[in-house]
Nucleic acid binder design. Sequence first.
DNA 1: AAGCTCCACAACCGCCTGTAC
DNA 2: TGTACAGGCGGTTGTGGAGCT
Length: 299
Amino acid sequence: MGRSPCCEKAHTNKGAWTKEEDDRLIAYIRAHGEGCWRSLPKAAGLLRCGKSCRLRWINYLRPDLKRGNFSEEEDELIIKLHSLLGNKWSLIAGRLPGRTDNEIKNYWNTHIRRKLLNRGIDPATHRPLTGSDNHQNNNITTAAATTAAVNSSPDIPTTTTISFATTHHLIKQEAEDIKTINDSLDRRKINTHLPENQERCPDLNLELRIGPPHEQDNAMSASYMPHQQSVEYHRQKLVTGGAIICFGCSMGSIKNNNNIKECSCTTSLNGTSSNSTGYGYDFLGLKNVGLDYRSLEMK
DNA sequence: AAGCTCCACAACCGCCTGTAC
DNA sequence: TGTACAGGCGGTTGTGGAGCT
C-alpha cells in the first residue's frame, strides 16, 4: 500500500499561477498565516495542491523576498557557502536574506556554474579543472587549492587562505559517519576514519571518533576501549591544522549532560575559542571551524 | 517574418524526515 | 513499534522569452 497522494490530482490545477490564484493565496495567508498547507487550498478556494501553494508562497509571493539580480557579493557568498555545504540550497538560502533555495539553485545552475567553469574551477568539487591527475585528492577539496584557484582569478581580490573548502567534505563525512553508526548493528566497530581521510586530504589531519550513547560507555569501554578513549568518547575531535574542534560541542548536545565528563575541547558554543589560530576562523561569522549547524538553520 | 536554439526560471516530482497516533 | 501524514528538500522538467539565422 503506497502513500496517499498529497492532494486530489484530478481536481487540481497545474502549471503557471494566475493573478487571481496569487491574490487568493496572499489574502488567505495574510488572514490566517502560514501552515497546514494540505488544507489551505480548499480553505482558500484554490484548486491547487498544498505543496504547490507552499512553493508558490515561499518562492514567489512572500513579502520579504528580494527580487532582482544577485550582487557580486552574493555570488561570492554563494560560491563559498556551496564549497562548505554542497547542494544544501536551503541552508545556503538561510545565509542570504530575501533569497530562496529555489532561486539560488536556479542561479547556481544557470550562472555560477558557468562562472566557475570560466575560472577553471569545477563547480561540483571547487577544485581546479586542470589536472585530473591528482586522483588521490579527488574526493576531498583542499582549501589551498580552492582558494588559490579563486584568488587567481583577476576579478577576485586576493584574500587570506581559509579552510572552508575542507569543511564541506568534513561535514559530508560526518553525516556519513553518523549514518553509518545509526545503520550499524555493531556500533563498537566504529572508531576512526583517520587513515582514509589522511590519504584523501593530505592538508587535513582528520581524526573522527564516534561512539555509542554514553550510558553504554562504561560497560563497553572496559571491554574494547582504552580508558582515555572512553573519556573522550562523547565527542569527535576534528583536528584541522592544529585547531581542535569538538563536534559534539559544536552540535550543542553534550555540554550539559551530567552523565559525561565535562568536555575539554577548545571550542565553545558561543563562538569563542581559546584557540584562535585555527584555520577558517571568522569565516562568514562562523567563528568555529566546526560548523554550528543550528546557526545555519535559519528558515 | 518565420523558424530555430538557447537560456532563465517557475513549477513539479519523488524522496526523506519528523511527528502524532 | 509501526503507520500515516505533513512539511521540507533537492533534482528535474516545462515553458516563455530573447537572440540568432
